[in-house]
Amino acid sequence: MTEPSKPRIVITYCTQCQWLLRAGWMAQELLSTFTSDLGEVALVPGSGGVFQIDYNDVVIWERQKDGGFPDVKTLKQRVRDQLDPGRSLGHVDRT
């Protein structure tokens, strides 16, 4: 019996805009918070001002549509809502 595959996060960032550090920082935050729950966080170079975050092929953040970049709290909440909606993120969920 095989174990079900863990979710994959893809962060597509614009190389022309030099958003690699931002994408890498967000990947680090997600891997630190969802340590054993994620199978992969991939960084994919793009162009044309793209900054998009996908969870198993579901877009959870798109810079142009959502108006800029997510703060870490919002990003973690959106990933949690896909991964395990009932899960508490501790201090991140506090207002």
Score class of each variant (00 low, 15 high):
7 P>E: 02
77 Q>Y: 07
95 T>F: 00
57 D>Y: 09
39 G>N: 02
57 D>H: 11
29 E>I: 07
64 Q>N: 13
48 G>R: 11
30 L>N: 09
71 D>H: 10
93 D>P: 06
17 C>K: 07
18 Q>E: 13
58 V>N: 13
73 K>N: 08
73 K>H: 05
71 D>Q: 09
47 S>G: 11
45 P>N: 12
7 P>T: 03
57 D>I: 02
45 P>F: 04
61 W>C: 02
70 P>S: 01
49 G>H: 11
58 V>K: 15
27 A>D: 01
21 L>K: 14
4 P>N: 09
45 P>S: 08
79 V>E: 00
40 E>I: 07
94 R>G: 05
2 T>L: 15
45 P>Q: 10
8 R>K: 15
61 W>K: 03
11 I>M: 04
72 V>T: 15
15 T>I: 14
73 K>W: 00
94 R>M: 12
21 L>H: 13
8 R>A: 02
39 G>R: 12
6 K>T: 03
19 W>G: 07
12 T>Q: 11
8 R>C: 01
15 T>Y: 00
48 G>V: 05
29 E>Y: 04
37 D>N: 13
70 P>H: 02
94 R>N: 11
44 V>D: 11
48 G>A: 06
41 V>I: 13
18 Q>V: 14
32 S>F: 03
36 S>R: 13
43 L>F: 03
56 N>P: 11
67 G>Q: 11
31 L>P: 04
66 D>E: 03
37 D>F: 00
67 G>S: 05
1 M>H: 06
35 T>V: 14
31 L>T: 15
23 A>R: 05
70 P>F: 07
48 G>H: 14
86 G>R: 05
4 P>V: 03
92 V>G: 01
40 E>T: 08
39 G>E: 10
68 G>A: 04
82 Q>Y: 04
55 Y>R: 07
41 V>C: 01
54 D>V: 03
72 V>H: 06
76 K>Q: 10
60 I>P: 06
37 D>K: 15
51 F>K: 09
95 T>Y: 02
41 V>N: 01
37 D>V: 08
47 S>T: 14
63 R>M: 04
21 L>C: 09
3 E>N: 13
28 Q>R: 14
53 I>R: 04
75 L>Y: 03
48 G>N: 10
38 L>A: 04
18 Q>M: 13
55 Y>A: 03
17 C>A: 12
37 D>W: 03
59 V>E: 05
95 T>Q: 09
22 R>W: 00
1 M>E: 08
2 T>R: 15
61 W>G: 00
6 K>P: 09
75 L>F: 02
53 I>F: 05
42 A>C: 01
59 V>N: 12
85 P>R: 06
64 Q>K: 15
30 L>S: 00
81 D>L: 09
75 L>K: 08
69 F>V: 08
65 K>R: 14
77 Q>N: 13
92 V>W: 11
55 Y>D: 04
6 K>H: 09
76 K>S: 01
70 P>T: 05
